[in-house]
Write a protein that binds this DNA or RNA. Structure first.
Lengths: 303, 303
DNA sequence: TCAATTCATGAGCTTTCCCTATGAATGTCA
DNA sequence: TGACATTCATAGGGAAAGCTCATGAATTGA
């Protein structure tokens, strides 16, 4: 047998109270159990810890030394329990995840804000990467999950759609634009347009879908960042071609989105997880927040 | 139930080996026992520690954190065991004890030397105090025992005589002195004498015994320290009146002791211990050394 | 598809653990 | 001084746990 924490618990109690009976009472065990545990510990360590008579229990010098070590171990044990409980309840910890550049800038800020409000002590490590890097990075780094738009299936990675935004024209609430329920891609020609650069995933999806129908987007401006597009749109430079989900209403109150049809394209925002890996409680809480926040933003499939 | 060290041992082994089977083998238990222990620990902490399939055992983030704490506790436990074992075997530790001034200067140095040779890592805290203070200090301080000459009995303190020296005249190996087997107190008048001051315990014992017989010591010199008396004697200033045990033969090779008779007085050197208090292993070792060293110096009761 | 490996689970046995009861020692108070 | 009270140690028995063995399920590699 080996030293046990139970023995140490009794030991420290006896050391402090200088009484086996009192220590036993403190710990909710009988005096005989406490007496036995002390004897075991002494046998284990090969050292007399208390000079005891029926009248007094005096710690030896060895006990003085052992006490410090025992207290440390017990407080370590308690600290471990507490820390794990905090982790379990997502009151502490860290969430490391990946986000595609677009999602990170347009969609996740509000998730982050809400999550931080409810879980102020959790450290957040969001790494924005190119959409193509999501899957390889998720497999290789310590990120627990990834959020972004991906297509296809991947070994060992589960993909779940959190929200899905229809590709829309986003513009100022002007009379002629606001009046429309939707626009066709062809009708876009009437306005100046602001689209993402050809290298971006969003743009590639658009170009591919349009060219399948013999059409083609011919934007007035091309930008790299979603926010740039929105800011330009707010200035009245044109209509931004983006998934509706990418428009933060609170940040750009003057802008509205109108779905583009013929073809109607949707861009999913997915949650990627490594299969067979449990998310940390903190990550689970974050994902839950993301789910609720983003679910409210899903564009209905028809309309 | 609470977290146990056994659980933590299995946990760290699994964490390191990333396999329940291997960890179980390491610890000499069956795979099922290890599996169970891990499940218990998870339940206890409320946290998933490993993502396990039949093929792999992956630590979670919580496990990463727990591992550090667990390792610390286990090494603390091992350190405690080792330290206690060292104490038990008197390979480490501290001996704090009291010694009367005379004993400390004349008798204990050789004990200290021998003890230090056999127990080099034990810290020695010898406090020399007035003989009258031995008992009160022993009760009040953290000294484990005391060595010195005391008379009478004391509550809660056991007294054991380690050696006993007959009061003797100590002088240089001159023809007339060396020829004597013993001297009477009356014969002392033929030589100049060096005695301890009246305030010292030794002197008080002498004066008391002599005056009971209507005699009286009339020393040429009176000193406070035994070593002073011996040094003066070595210079040929006279005969030192001291217990024979107080003469370190190696330090004063020119000096010899001749017992004083009519009356023959002996002065015990005793070991004082608090009743019901175990000596630390280190102290036990020291006392054992003192016993053997001093036993060799006991003046035979007649001669 | 089969064999091999690995983790989880259930049954049963062994060991440990803890409580009750009692004994022994010591201090207290009349 | 003697009865009483308190405290620690120990013995016995029953409950709980811990462990092993056997088996099942899942997954990998030949």
């Amino acid at each position: 047998m080996n030293v046990t924490l139970r023995q140490l618990r009794v030991f420290t109690a006896v050391y402090r109270t200088r009484s086996i009976t009192r220590a036993a009472g403190e710990l909710g065990i009988t005096q005989s159990a406490a007496s036995l545990l002390i004897q075991q510990l002494e046998a284990q360590l090969g050292v007399k810890l208390f000079d005891r008579s029926t009248r007094s229990v005096q710690p030896t010098l060895a006990a003085d030394e052992a006490f410090a070590a025992a207290e440390r171990m017990l407080s370590d044990a308690q600290g471990l329990s507490r820390r794990m409980r905090d982790l379990a309840q997502a009151r502490a910890g860290r969430v490391a995840f990946l986000a595609s550049a677009g999602t990170a800038s347009a969609l996740l800020p509000m998730v982050l804000a809400k999550f931080r409000a409810s879980h102020p002590d959790i450290e957040i490590d969001m790494r924005d990467v190119a959409a193509d890097d999501l899957v390889p990075r998720l497999s290789a780094t310590d990120a627990e999950f990834a959020i972004g738009s991906v297509e296809g299936e991947f070994a060992d990675i589960t993909v779940e759609t959190l929200t899905s935004g229809r590709l829309s024209a986003i513009g100022r609430r002007t009379a002629d634009f606001a009046a429309r329920r939707s626009l066709t891609w062809d009708e876009l020609a009437q306005w100046p347009t602001i689209a993402m650069r050809s290298e971006t995933r969003i743009r590639m999806q658009i170009d591919q879908a349009l060219s399948a129908q013999g059409k083609r987007l011919d934007p007035t401006y091309e930008v790299t960042l979603i926010n740039t597009a929105l800011a330009m749109t707010a200035q009245g430079l044109g209509l931004a071609i983006l998934p509706a989900t990418m428009l933060p209403a609170d940040q750009f109150p003057t802008l509205i989105a109108r779905p583009l049809v013929r073809p109607a394209l949707t861009r999913p925002v997915s949650l990627l997880q490594r299969q067979g890996r449990t998310l940390s409680p903190a990550a689970q809480a974050f994902v839950a927040t993301a789910r609720t926040v983003l679910a409210g933003r899903t564009t209905p499939p028809s309309g």
